[in-house]
Design a protein around this nucleic acid. Structure first.
Length: 585
DNA sequence: GCCGTTTTCGGCCCGACTGTTTTCAGTCG
């Protein structure tokens, strides 16, 4: 294979194809390409690997990929492009994907801008708008031109998405304020926040009311509101203090479920649901499920799913990645319940870069209902945080023993275990000797350097780590930090299979900017039967709250309680840890 | 271009809103 493309890059190429066909007013192809792009982006395994393994036949197994698109992808890997794509590119602006993210600009308007004003990039667009050339175009006007300028401004300011960990507390606070506000019965978050997506574009909220005008007024009076952006009859768009856009929809109580379902999405899930309804001679919209003019269900989501012949599907897995098929077959996973974690297996303390003592972290963990923590400070080669060597870990062990003793005498049922976040060298060796690792209850290993090795080297590096008999967990396996650092190159399929073979657990690091593993990777791990651990990676007591975000990632990846190691009691965990790795189940 | 409780051809999700129109196309979620 001559060229390499990751799934995201392939998806974007297919999206460009979709836009191209849309511009040419070719029917149905745009949706087909769009759909293929979406499913490819959500694949846990690299498309290139699958192509190598099974050729185009293998690719055709992917939902929405047929013979034509499979062939295009094959050509893409062989030659770096394919004929039809090259043709499309000739007729489109270079930066068509960016241009179409500007609100109100879709394929057709972008095409007109390109053909009449030679707009190829965002800068071209801005110049054309400032020079008031856009308003003269057919189908455009002064208002559109102004909206485009505002759109460019918005794009530049807020193109980076927010972390769920930042948005969720705010969303809950708004819910709370509105629930007790005049004219409002219920206020429930919807959209990507309710699905607990790792990053959030905007915040959707469904409000029920008998007095919409009064409800709207209450919303406008919220103290977090910075600016009202749009006001409709039943919806209002506001800019919050932190510049996050919040889209509120006001509906009567009797259609609450339908509205919540509709605005929770995701879009693809809803499309599939409406198709299913259509196949049964029904119609699903944001006002309910209908047979002709008769409304069959609308008040609750459960009622709607039931009337469609389905069990309730949890918001986190409404991603159009097989949940509807599983629901029909009665094979939905029994998702990990929130609050099922009994311990946290990655905690840093003031012994290295944490801000609280072991005792303070233990106390904070106990208060939020945990039964144990593992203290896992950094090890010696991470010099910038004063990583611990064998001697330091020995001293720390004595402090932990004393603390456990005090807890016991005070009849407090809480256990502190000994661990470390052991640094992995470039060659996959560890920066502490086996003799030291052997003394610890839990050994987590993590990559903190050499992020840019090629895929083969990086994969072999981690495999070597997993083959070490003392390494229990790989921490934040891909090393990504959202918005700051790309994940390392890994053959994840191979890594996860090795994890299974060697009995090494994989971490779901719940720290909001890490979220690592991420959803699709968890799904693959669950499928392969790899043991997972959800950790906060807390560096201060408040960080323990991140665990909930990790639970959300696990749920989105279809994980059940049995897949997650730290749902075990401390005794059961210890038993598991003392077994030789290859006997751990 | 893809797909199959419509099954290898003939369909393909739904409604609101906006701005530009004078009846509707384009965009969005």
């Amino acid at each position: 294979m001559a060229k390499k493309f990751n799934n995201h890059e392939i998806a974007n190429i297919l999206r460009e194809m979709s836009i191209c066909y849309e511009m040419e007013r070719i029917a149905f192809k745009p949706a087909a390409y769009e759909r293929a792009a979406d499913t490819i982006e959500l694949q846990g395994e690299e498309i290139g690997e699958r192509l190598k393994r099974g050729g185009t036949k293998e690719l055709e197994k992917i939902e929405g990929v047929g013979p034509a698109i499979a062939k295009h992808i094959e050509e893409l890997f062989k030659h770096g492009s394919f004929r039809e794509y090259a043709r499309c590119r000739r007729n489109m602006p270079d930066d068509v994907l960016t241009l179409t993210t500007i609100p109100d600009l879709g394929p057709h308007k972008v095409r007109i801008l390109y053909e009449k004003l030679h707009v190829r990039t965002l800068n071209d667009l801005e110049r054309a708008a400032r020079e008031k050339r856009i308003r003269k175009l057919p189908g455009f006007g002064v208002k559109t031109e102004e909206k485009i300028l505002r759109g460019i401004d918005w794009f530049r300011k807020s193109s980076q998405r927010r972390l769920l960990g930042d948005v969720l507390p705010l969303a809950r606070s708004i819910e709370r304020h509105l629930k007790s506000a005049p004219g409002i019965k219920q206020a429930v978050m919807a959209g990507s926040v309710r699905r607990r997506q790792e990053t959030i574009g905007d915040f959707d909220l469904v409000v029920t009311s008998d007095q919409p005008a009064k409800a709207m007024a209450s919303i406008e009076r919220l103290k977090m509101v910075k600016k009202i952006l749009e006001r409709g009859r039943r919806n209002i768009v506001i800019q919050l203090e932190n510049d996050l856009t919040c889209d509120v929809i006001v509906v009567p109580n009797e259609s609450f479920g339908a509205a919540l379902q509709h605005f929770t999405g995701n879009k693809e899930h809803n499309v599939l649901l409406r198709k299913l309804a259509g196949a049964k001679g029904l119609k699903l919209n944001e006002y309910g499920l209908w047979r002709g003019k008769k409304r069959l269900a609308a008040k609750t989501e459960k009622e709607i799913y039931r009337a469609l012949g389905l069990p309730y599907i949890e918001p986190e897995i409404r991603l159009a990645t097989g949940e509807i098929e599983a629901a029909i077959a009665g094979k939905l996973p029994n998702l990990l319940p929130y609050g099922a974690l009994r311990g946290d297996l990655q905690i840093q303390t003031s012994w290295t870069d944490g801000l609280a003592t072991i005792e303070q972290m233990a106390e904070a963990a106990r208060i939020i209902g945990l039964e144990y923590i593992v203290v896992t400070d950094h090890t010696r080669s991470l010099a910038m945080v004063g990583g611990l060597d064998s001697k330091g870990l020995g001293a720390q062990a004595r402090e932990i023993d004393q603390l456990n003793h005090r807890l016991k005498t005070a009849k407090i049922k809480f256990t502190v275990l000994k661990g470390a976040e052991v640094n992995i060298f470039k060659d996959g060796s560890l920066d502490l000797p086996d003799a030291t690792l052997k003394k610890l209850d839990v050994v987590g290993a993590a990559i903190h350097s050499n992020f840019n090795l090629d895929k083969k080297t990086q994969t072999e590096r981690l495999i070597r780590v997993m083959k070490n008999q003392h390494v229990d967990i790989i921490y934040h396996p891909t090393g990504r930090i959202i918005g700051r650092r790309e994940p390392i190159e890994l053959d994840l399929d191979k890594i996860l299979r090795t994890a299974k073979e060697t009995g090494t657990a994989m971490e779901i690091n719940a720290s909001p900017d890490r979220s690592d593993l991420q959803t699709t990777q968890v799904r693959l791990a669950v499928k392969l039967g790899v043991k997972l651990v959800i950790n906060s990676d807390a560096h201060r007591p408040e960080h323990l709250r991140f665990l909930e975000l990790g639970e959300a990632i696990a749920r989105r990846g279809w994980a059940e309680k049995k897949n997650i190691l730290n749902t075990k009691s401390v005794q059961a965990l210890k038993t598991w840890l003392t077994k030789p790795k290859n006997q751990r189940r």
